[in-house]
């Protein structure tokens, strides 16, 4: 096991940031922590990165206990905090060199590991880090987190605030790093990124709701989901919410996702109900459940 967390609890005064959190990550796996802001993702990262000590429970990273062997862990993990935290007044190259040196290595030695990523920012290597764009900052931060050839990589919301193209590139890079045998624990508030992980854990209010592969997690969703649309979306949501058999109603892209309390029900009946309210152009069709649907159902 590359990362193992068992029964971790952490409170800040009267806020319980983490409650009895347990999970395991296999070597070479991309494990996603999916949850809204304030779910406890960063707290968990900080505990695993040996920056924070849990109130109770055990955790180990790369086979080392996070409390007892924190020194060993600091040598073999790469941590990329959610907030950009490199030296803004040093250049791209100086930042990389600095982190290489304090890990007692050189850029040359592990260049193969960062080559793909570093090549993209190399044209700007004499630029101060503070003057880089958001996407480039993330790439530099990833390079700095990788320069000492870590066994485990912790990425706390690496793509928040990054444009869609850079996000996609970033995930491509993670896939390539995975092939080099690096275990990656990544958190994200974006549900579409969740499907790119090998396994994901839903986390909300400090509790883990579900852990499984993205494909399997969707199968947990037993209810039939309907895509609904009409000429007045707001009215549609409002009227669906007041419908007596409604189980869940929430907007989903250009549609409204709807589930019914009954296992079997007549679509015409619903259509009739909506028409009576005064909605037009009503379409109702069965949709494939997504990770977001599963999360919404679990988070309810």
């Amino acid at each position: 096991m590359s990362i193992s967390v068992s029964h971790i609890n952490k409170s800040y005064k009267d806020i319980r940031a983490l409650q009895d959190v347990s999970f395991e990550v296999k070597k070479g796996e991309i494990f996603g922590l999916i949850g809204p802001d304030g779910a406890g993702k960063t707290t968990l990262f900080r505990i695993l990165a040996t920056l924070l000590i849990a109130d109770s429970g055990q955790a180990s990273v790369a086979g080392h206990d996070v409390v007892k062997d924190y020194k060993t862990i600091r040598n073999c993990v790469g941590y990329m905090p959610g907030k950009f935290s490199l030296y803004q007044d040093l250049t791209v190259e100086e930042n990389l060199e600095f982190f290489a040196t304090i890990f007692k290595t050189t850029i040359k030695e592990n260049y193969h590991l960062i080559e793909d990523i570093y090549k993209q920012i190399e044209p700007f290597k004499t630029r101060r880090a503070g003057k880089l764009s958001g996407g480039m900052k993330q790439k530099l931060a990833l390079c700095c987190a990788l320069i000492h050839k870590p066994e485990v990589l912790f990425l706390d919301e690496p793509t928040t605030g990054v444009d869609p193209v850079s996000r996609k590139e970033f995930w491509d890079m993670l896939k390539r790093l995975q092939q080099k045998g690096i275990t990656i624990l990544v958190s994200t508030p974006y549900m579409d990124e969740a499907s790119l992980c090998d396994r994901i854990a839903f986390i909300q209010d400090g509790k883990i709701l579900e852990i499984d592969s993205p494909e399997a997690i969707v199968k947990h969703f037993t209810k039939t989901i309907y895509n609904l649309s009409a000429n007045n979306m707001y009215k549609l949501i409002e009227s669906l919410k007041t419908y007596e058999h409604a189980h869940s109603v929430y907007p989903f892209g250009e549609f409204v996702h709807y589930t019914d309390t009954r296992d079997v029900f007549d679509i015409d009946e619903l259509q009739h109900y909506l028409k009576n309210i005064g909605l037009n152009d009503i379409t109702i069709e069965i949709a494939k459940p997504t990770i977001e649907d599963t999360f919404m159902a679990l988070a309810k």
Partner: peptide
């Protein structure tokens, strides 16, 4: 303040 200390703290420095 700028968060670099957090990054430094996870290094074996």
């Amino acid at each position: 303040e700028i968060g670099t200390l957090e990054q430094i703290n996870v290094t074996p420095i």
